[in-house]
Every structure is written in C-alpha cells, then in structure tokens.
Amino acid sequence: MAVDKGMDILVVDDYQTMVRILKNLLKQIGFSNIDEASDGREALDKIQNREYGLVISDWNMEPMTGYDLLKAVRGAEDHYSDVPFIMVTAESKTENVVAAKQAGVNNYIVKPFNAETLKGKIESVLGPIG
C-alpha cells in the first residue's frame, strides 16, 4: 500500500535552518502536512495531542533530547507509542545507533544527508511513496 502523502509529519530540530531544510525536502517528496517542534518536550506535547504518521527527530536538543523523546514515546501506554520514528542526527557513533535501535527507532539518518537518502529511509519505514 502506498504511503498517504496527506498524513501529518512532525519534524523536531532545534536548528531552525534544519527544520526548514527538512520541511522543504519533504514537500518536494510530496508530503504537504508538516508540523514542527524545537525540542523533545514540545514534540512530546504535540504527539500526545495529534496523530502523526511519522516523526523525524534530531538527537542533540535541549532541554529534552531526541533520544529521550524516543524513549518517552515508546514507553508510553498510549495510541502514539508505535508512531514511526526516524532519527536524523550528526551523532554517528556506533553507540548512538545501537542505543537508538534498542530504544525503538525505525531508522537512522546521519547528517549531512541528501533528499534521496531521506526518501529511501521513509520508504523503508512506511512503504513506497510513489
């Protein structure tokens, strides 16, 4: 089944430039409903109150990191606990990738990345975009 391009996507990053880059690339891929948050805490509030089809989050943010957000989401006994979650980060140490996977991340993109990688990882998590 093809991905619903009208689904809500949440982009989480404390660098406004990166939020803008991701939003523009997602629009180019075909997604139209893109929301944003500047750290894990703001993102968690949004996730608790809106049904997202995908969360794309940075790791290194304050006060709540993307890793803490991932653990909070996966640890919740609520409707959002299994939301697809892709980490997009400059943290590229093996320990980071293993920690994220163990916490339940669906895929992991290391910065800098390109549109093709972003599209490929979204497809590997959600299925063909078309």
Binding site: N60, E91, S92, T94, N96, V97, A99, V110, F113, T117
Partner: peptide
C-alpha cells in the same frame, strides 16, 4: 554509554573518524 545519555551527545564526528550512512545501515 546509555547509562549516561549525556555521553551520547558528541555532535558531528571528523570525516576520517565518522561512521557512514552505509555503516549505520549495516548496523541496523
């Protein structure tokens, strides 16, 4: 270490020491 999440915040690695996207894909 996952026991100390702050230790996982190291930012971008230098190119010659960085783990590539391909390495990450293999690890996953």
């Amino acid at each position: 270490s996952t026991e100390n999440p702050d230790s996982l915040l190291n930012g971008p690695q230098m190119p010659d020491a960085a783990v590539s996207q391909d390495d990450i894909d293999k690890l996953l």
